[in-house]
């Protein structure tokens, strides 16, 4: 997996935001990671510790908000939780491939000082 590349980018965005805010330290990063993003939260944590070393984010904490994937059912006009990209609606049993959530790889906010 490519968690190190992704974490490097998250840290770059966090440090840019901290500098723009006139801060000198990054204290905490909050990421939003979808269950079908292909990224493993444990590996992100591992990568985070590695990439923060020697930067203004050294010692910062990482919070990961897991986003449960959901498909849209056209028949029921409602979402349902899903485990992959193509799932049966638990209400009407029609099949949907219209993923509404679950691919997120986002930085939500950053706490600085």
């Amino acid at each position: 997996m490519h968690e190190v590349s992704i974490m490097t980018e998250a840290l770059r965005m966090a440090m840019d935001a901290a500098k723009s805010a006139g801060s000198t330290r990054v204290l905490k990063l909050r990421l939003r990671i979808g269950s079908l993003s292909g990224v493993v939260p444990e590996s992100l944590q591992f990568a985070f510790d590695v990439v923060c070393h020697g930067t203004m984010a050294e010692g910062a904490s990482l919070e990961i908000e897991a986003v449960q994937a959901a498909c849209w059912c056209e028949t029921c006009q409602a979402e349902f939780d899903c485990v992959d990209f193509f799932n049966e609606c638990p209400r009407c049993h029609n099949v949907s491939g219209e993923l509404r959530r679950g691919r997120e790889l986002e930085i939500a906010d950053v706490e600085t000082s």
């Binding site: 935001a17 801060s23 986002e106 906010d109």
Partner: peptide, 16 residues
């Protein structure tokens, strides 16, 4: 003066 105290900067941006 410009760098005191904790603050939360909202980003909501894709890492990609």
């Amino acid at each position: 003066g410009h760098a005191h105290g904790k603050q939360t900067v909202s980003l909501n941006r894709s890492l990609m």
